[in-house]
Write a protein that binds this DNA or RNA. Structure first.
Lengths: 251, 251
DNA sequence: ACAAAAGTGTTTGGCGTACACCCATGA
DNA sequence: TCATGGGTGTACGCCAAACACTTTTGT
């Protein structure tokens, strides 16, 4: 796969890559989708190269699909990373050695690379990680337990989370992260997990319902300990409207 | 200049450029710093290429300085643009013809380019546009009167302004855009210009003073028509503090 | 019956909105 | 003296923070 790309590198944008940060939510935990190369101890964000005939936004979708099998998600660009030392020679040469590519041919890979970061929020249960490339695996990792990542991928992940925290104040979040029917406490847990702080139940309820994007269903969650919580769903139409117009106008 | 770069293109990151959107404020108008090539009718954002041995953030400073003479401003990355059709072949070939470079040698320039956008807010009066390259000029243009720009530079400019509008709700703005001493009406005009809408005088005063970043000076503006307005300055320490912590916490 | 989690208020203070009035200055 | 722009103040309403009580459910 990677070998194909290096050998046909004229079909790819030189010195530029894409890395994706995919967030999911499950068991009240924020999850991140990571790639693992079985014979390597290190994990990485799902990333890849930009076909020379694709818009970068399209390439991001292509890249994500190739590395994880994930389809049809809306990827949002959040930053571009281009420190000189972000990809060290060592790393590239190790790959060339593993792939049995000689140094001259592999120069394309060991050149200085800049990477564009994209992120997305997805429904954990609908996503079945399944990379096209069978030599690696993609799996969900609790963001509190993310191991050491290659290159500057940890920095990219942190920046994505920072962006997500800011976006939380500008637009509603949850449509893609929660199942169709959910409870307010679940939604609150999502917010608390992203923000990494506790919120007041009662104030949260009022604030979130005031936005006007929730529909209270005539149904309660069953088979749960304690009092059964109400189920809600998003009013997609109003949700999208708020997405467009934003939340806090400020000025 | 550009010819040097093309002929020494191994010293530059291939297929990747930087474009800068520099905002200033003068005569109650939002200004944008643009480059003009005398024998061309078109204007452009000050942009350029990335030295292979510089971080992209550093390269942005280098690029801006080369094209405009502007020094020591804090450039903020806001987006990366990479549509396939953003730089058409036509445009690149016209440049090669003008510079008398043959097509083979100029392939570096006509390849597909992705560009990283940076923006900055600067003190209009302290900036003297003076490009290193004497074959072009840099000048301030009222943002309401920006002419047609090359390639997708208009789109980049619009995106920078959108970003600025959002940032206005997250952090104070004005330190770099106004002279040391200024009046509240002046600051309000700045906000109104950026947001492109009218604000209430009295409410603006309360809101902006409540932030706690202004110092009321024991001085009034002289030689003005009508009642002399009070002068204010920014309390740099508190200003920087708010810059770090942000304004609307939201959740 | 008890603990744990969920639903439903209430009070308080601050902030945003929408106003009205007075003051200073140049024409 | 009058129009214009600047400074100051107030009343209303909403929203956010802090907090208490009731309801439901499994054990």
């Amino acid at each position: 796969m990677l070998k194909d790309i290096i050998e046909n590198n004229q079909n790819y944008q030189p010195g530029l890559s894409i890395d994706c940060v995919i967030f999911g939510f499950h068991d009240n935990q924020l999850k991140v989708l990571l790639n693992k190369i079985p014979d390597s101890l290190q994990c990485s964000l799902p990333g890849g190269f930009i076909p020379i005939d694709q818009d970068i936004d399209t390439a991001a979708v292509t890249v994500l699909n190739t590395r994880t099998g994930v389809e049809g998600v809306f990827l949002r660009q959040f930053a571009t990373f281009g420190k000189i030392k972000r990809n060290d020679q060592h790393f590239g040469k190790a790959i060339l050695e593993r792939l049995n590519i000689d140094e001259e041919k592999g120069k394309w890979l060991t050149q200085r690379f800049v990477t564009i970061g994209y992120y997305a929020l997805v429904d954990f249960l609908k996503i079945i990680p399944n990379p096209v490339n069978k030599y690696e695996v993609a799996e969900w990792i609790d963001h509190k337990e993310v191991p050491e990542l290659i290159l500057d991928h940890k920095e990219i992940l942190d920046k994505a989370l920072d962006t997500l925290r800011i976006e939380l104040n500008l637009m509603p979040v949850g449509y893609n992260l929660l199942p169709e029917k959910f409870t307010i406490p679940e939604l609150q847990k999502l917010y608390e997990t992203i923000l990494d702080k506790k919120l007041d139940r009662r104030n949260f309820l009022r604030k979130i319902t005031n936005i006007g994007i929730l529909t209270k269903l005539d149904e309660k969650k069953s088979n749960v300990a304690h009092k059964a919580p109400n189920l809600y769903s998003f009013d997609k139409e109003k949700y999208d409207e708020v997405l467009k117009n934003g939340l806090n106008q400020g000025w």
